[in-house]
Design a protein around this nucleic acid. Structure first.
Lengths: 179, 179
DNA sequence: ATAATCGCCGTATTAAATTCTGTATCAATA
DNA sequence: TATTGATACAGAATTTAATACGGCGATTAT
């Protein structure tokens, strides 16, 4: 199918009403938006360019909001993401923190304001691997467990542009389910 | 984007796990599945054919369940559909039924088994037009209202192939929301 | 009646999808 | 360690589809 470069908020491209042919087109595209305009035209009784025109209009008018891939959540389930509080003897680049950061599962280490402990973000394949990692972490001299952590099972991570978290309304991809 | 003719239930095309690049691809396609493979490749750091291969695999493995148009329900709301019981003096092609069938809003007329009245299916733009039609119908000599009807507001009608209603499990388009 | 508009078709052109071939990389194996 | 096989990729070539364009018939407005 085509890629429409002109935005949705164009200067009002004649918002005709959705007729029977349009509904047939929508019925096809809801099922499978990867059909060619030739096949689409065949199914609804139009020539390829005519079908193309219809779809373009349906997109511009917002009747077709989007054309999106529908993802199987099970297939894209990501490994576990855990935020773990740990106690160390100090802050900064102490030997304990150096040792912790050696583990590839540890992605971030934060000094938490108003608290005497560190917060680390770790990512593992499953709970078993998470437990193994934590026990290994707690074996590090000077590191003690606070038994305070959050474990999340993420689906699909999406990059967030710097700054947009302060925008309002929220950017579209923040409002959509993360799969 | 492409149209995959080979079915999903192929003989197990190596269900590799979804890696970081796949997730990037999914992130793009969830937002907008109309991007070309060239642009998709650009965004995830692959050549167009490589991106194509990845997407093909994601489709075959079922990770990408479908690529569908997302429709604005408000834009495709259909006129009212009403099923109305009416009393007539008889069955068959009586003058009353002929008069009723003259109205273009009347799409079907049924003789109902085990009942002495008729069931007609009518379609109007809105409730106002529906009321007007009904009052006109009831003005027909020999036709009296039973004050029994059902009014539905449909979104998008989809043709149903003859016979499939007896199939099990139900065909996919029966299970999907009708917009 | 006449002009204007709209939606469509057929054709031509452009762009993208798809195929093909060679290559680098990694893993398993002799 | 060398070798084989499989995998994923890039680049070029080919096929197919998307898109632009011109003209026609029907409908609507003037």
């Amino acid at each position: 199918m085509d890629k429409e470069t002109d935005g949705i908020l164009q200067n009002r491209p004649a918002a005709r009403d959705v007729d029977a042919t349009d509904r047939k087109i929508l019925g096809v595209l809801v099922d499978d938006a990867t059909v060619s305009y030739a096949e689409l035209g065949d199914r609804v009784g139009l020539s390829p360019p005519a079908a193309h025109e219809r779809v373009k209009r349906l997109r511009r008018s917002g009747t077709i909001r989007n054309t999106a891939a529908i993802i199987d959540p099970k297939a894209v389930r990501k490994p576990l993401l855990a935020f773990v509080h740990i106690d160390t003897k100090g802050w900064g680049k102490t030997p304990e923190l150096m040792a912790i950061s050696e583990h590839p599962e540890v992605e971030e280490i934060h000094s938490v304001a108003g608290d005497t402990c560190m917060l680390i973000k770790v990512r593992t394949e499953d709970t078993r691997a998470l437990e193994g990692l934590l026990s290994r972490l707690y074996e590090t001299p000077g590191v003690t467990s606070t038994r305070s952590y959050v474990v999340l099972s993420t689906y699909l991570e999406r990059p967030v542009q710097p700054g947009i978290t302060t925008e309002w309304p929220a950017p579209r991809h923040m409002a959509k389910p993360l799969y």
